[in-house]
Design a protein around this nucleic acid. Sequence first.
DNA 1: TTGAAAGCGGTACCAC
DNA 2: GTGGTACCGCTTTCAA
Lengths: 300, 300
Amino acid sequence: MVKPQKLEAVRAVIQRTGYVPNLLAGGLASKKSRLVAAIVPTIGNSIFAEAIERFTDRLGDAGYKVMLGLSGYPADKEEALLEAVLSRKPDAIFLTGINHSQVTRSRLLAAKVPVVETWDFTPTPIDMLVGFSNEKLGRSVALYLYDKGYRRFGMVWASDERAKVRQGAFLAALSERGINDVRISTVTAPGNFKKGRAGIAQLLDEGPSVEAVFCSSDVLAHGVMTEVQARGMSIPSDLAVIGFGDLEFAPYTFPALSTVHIDRSQIGLRAAEMVLARIEGRETEKVVDIGFSVVEREST
Amino acid sequence: MVKPQKLEAVRAVIQRTGYVPNLLAGGLASKKSRLVAAIVPTIGNSIFAEAIERFTDRLGDAGYKVMLGLSGYPADKEEALLEAVLSRKPDAIFLTGINHSQVTRSRLLAAKVPVVETWDFTPTPIDMLVGFSNEKLGRSVALYLYDKGYRRFGMVWASDERAKVRQGAFLAALSERGINDVRISTVTAPGNFKKGRAGIAQLLDEGPSVEAVFCSSDVLAHGVMTEVQARGMSIPSDLAVIGFGDLEFAPYTFPALSTVHIDRSQIGLRAAEMVLARIEGRETEKVVDIGFSVVEREST
DNA sequence: TTGAAAGCGGTACCAC
DNA sequence: GTGGTACCGCTTTCAA
């Protein structure tokens, strides 16, 4: 609402002086920091990295920057992180998982800041949610393997908060079918190639033979398959392996690796859209289940 | 400098009211935002993710949060990102690479903000630098392979800014030894497993045989080796493969994959230390070469 | 359409 | 030690 000439003059001065608006001051005055916080256990794992990348991209296009918070495995630093994050007055917060301490929940509620929880599912999130049911997922894998005729199961498992839920559901579903002797090799999170090799080695060395192994992630599954092949066993005839998370090249290196596919980009993107809608006062769904799908790869 | 009782009373009120200091206001007043920006092409690639993770961790311990900026491949969004970043008055900036536009350089200088450039080397950075010489690296790989007796070379290459330098140096070193017919399969960055398979397939299908292939990254090398094995060739006798970046499990899956190892954690950590020193007014080196090492893996 | 003035929630400095 | 006050650089509101 200014005259074109004046606008032009202002533009010129901005150019000449190299003026950059101070968004800290702007944020203080307007109570909109244009900063969004994202808290994930790690970005070293491409499963989170991809979601964060989409989230950051989408929000960046809308003029927001994301502050990164790494909560670690286990997420013991979440509470401290949250304090540091809240004091920067973010316009929204991206959280990993749905298991947050009571302190965290009430702080979040008190701050009245839009929150998206991710990577898991509950009908009653703190605020909003985009994810999938780890519970359902665990059961689905159990049924999938059971229906294929397998009866002797093993797990190579790196147990973070959400993997624990998948594990519980997997075991419960099998238990309902009379199977209670699942052999479990637990490794520390995050899982990696070496731990996968070591984990399955342990299962293979001690005790009765296992027909099918469920791995908490595809990097872990990758290690498992390498070890299995190194022992001259073939997959899936000697041992069936199913992973989680769809590590891009794993199925090529090991054509027999089944996996559970999650659209991780979708998590970041939907989360960004929901957050933007809330910030801008638009209507938005509060809970989105992006689901999962079991990808079968039995032969080359 | 207050009486213990008063301090206690204040603490109590803070607890009761749930007071969280507003760092936006604090930043405005003190001209210290306690925000540090990190600009990388992507975090999907674990090579950057790991550095950023360490950087974020170390700075987090010191009370700083990092704002993430994804510049993409090619880094065409860097300039726009910088503007968005600068307006948040970061206390320091982490940059990927040393090739920045003149506008970027002068904006950075004008902002008088500490800057660390990374993943490459120059004796004359904008401000500070921690990385390694992509130039030296390319030459080293050329000599390494040449000295082992190889004469017919191929490259499967995803060319980002820095990979281009490695490539140039590799070719120059070979050229000095009379080798000018290096066969190159270029793929779009970032490299991945599929592109590696496709890239080597192209080299293998058309034209004379290649003895040794240099890949711009280990994911790419991973794809290359899978394709080579799928063709029934053996490594390294039929084809030697050398990658870059030390993808954790690649050497296990393919024991014959040589690679160039970079300590990426070190980049994040050193960058954080340098930045902190500068912010706190302490002395610090301005240029750190973390080097690289060729890791030979010829047999299982 | 433009200009002036009052904050936003801290920090920094100064006098008491 | 303690309390008061002048900003920091914007947004917002209101009057002209």
